[in-house]
Design a protein around this nucleic acid. Sequence first.
DNA 1: TAATAAAGTTAGGTAAGCCAAACAAATATT
DNA 2: AATATTTGTTTGGCTTACCTAACTTTATTA
Lengths: 218, 218
Amino acid sequence: MLSHAEENYLKAMFHLTTMAESSNETGTNALASYLDVTPATVNDMLKKLKEKDLVSYEKYRKITLTQKGKDYAVDIVRRHRLWETFLYEKLDFSWDEVHEVAEQLEHIKSKKLIEQLEKFLDYPVTDPHGDPIPNAKGKIKYQKRKTLAEIPIGSICKLVAVKDTSASFLQYAMKIGLGLSSTIEILNRHEFDGSIEIKVNKSRSTVSLKFAENLFVV
Amino acid sequence: MLSHAEENYLKAMFHLTTMAESSNETGTNALASYLDVTPATVNDMLKKLKEKDLVSYEKYRKITLTQKGKDYAVDIVRRHRLWETFLYEKLDFSWDEVHEVAEQLEHIKSKKLIEQLEKFLDYPVTDPHGDPIPNAKGKIKYQKRKTLAEIPIGSICKLVAVKDTSASFLQYAMKIGLGLSSTIEILNRHEFDGSIEIKVNKSRSTVSLKFAENLFVV
DNA sequence: TAATAAAGTTAGGTAAGCCAAACAAATATT
DNA sequence: AATATTTGTTTGGCTTACCTAACTTTATTA
Ligand SMILES: [Mn+2]
Ligand SMILES: [Mn+2]
Ligand SMILES: [Mn+2]
Ligand SMILES: [Mn+2]
């Protein structure tokens, strides 16, 4: 049974490796800045996690999760996303409010709790941000997703997920009328800075390239 | 914002004073044995809680909660009982399983969470053990309750709450057919050891005085 | 009241999780 | 290849929440 802190490190590693597909390995500094602690602190913790066979790590080398570490991390992600779904579906939390509370709830230790919660929510497949919820066996159904930035002019697409889940990003998205399943029409694209004119619910907005890259659509 | 540990001390004090009506004050040893830590540890914590104006305490003297401490404790009890109700009502937890998980859930920090949870549960007034749930303002509706041990032979009464909420006690209660709202008929009482013959759901059992003292009935 | 028992306190110590500052290794740049 | 920069590590120190063992005060009982 791991501590809150240990679980947070595993989840952070999972996000920086397996999930942010890129490279599968990460480093002390990256983890430190992701978790908002110092590299020294990360270093201490890595020794403990290595001892428990959750990460593989040699001094001055890159860090990866072991299979055991990966399995554990997926379970934390599962708990997090189920709680987000509960807050959103049952307790009227908004898109941008769920994350903070789920960060706490994900650490509650009870197998039965999570299984019953999943059942109560009727086995949801995605969380309020459109991210897939791993099943009890740790299986994650990834769907290939394009960002809004890749869609050609004139197309109509549907928002299925968001990359950034910070409150400020989500609040901005809500402000221009965007929610999960919103229909988006691409009206025009300014080559100059990559900004895009879109239509959502009959209202037009111009959004930056950076913003568009954080919206996943089909 | 208090730590898990600090919250646990406040709740323990509340149980040992205000709730277990008796004396309104308690001591280092009583707290230590209730929380399963050493008196030395309690002593350390008491100094911290005094600093924060949550308990009033002078060296070698008895300990009481301040009004501030009492208010905080009631809020923890409220959270605990709302979560127990949620687990029991919505997630199919049994009588004896709710407490352990609620011990963890009660520490989640989010005002909105508790208010929405209460709303979602439709403002319940008692938890699965029959104990009153404080409202958002900290008001607790106590009902005067007798124990089964005080009921005369021949009477019929209804179980409204249990004093002991340990899994072993609750499992035994379930085994002889008892649940909240069960109807109990007192058939006979053995003066010798105080044990009582009762009928629940048409089946007879003989229970000890100690057991009877842990059942509240009307 | 004096001795004994019980209750409470203090001193010194541990592990977890964090930090800053000094240092070492690896990588990038010239 | 030499140097500079980035990345990672070590050391010593801090706080919280625990502990044991020795001690002091208060309460009980002879
Ligand atoms: Mn989240
Ligand atoms: Mn999410
Ligand atoms: Mn309980
Ligand atoms: Mn209860």
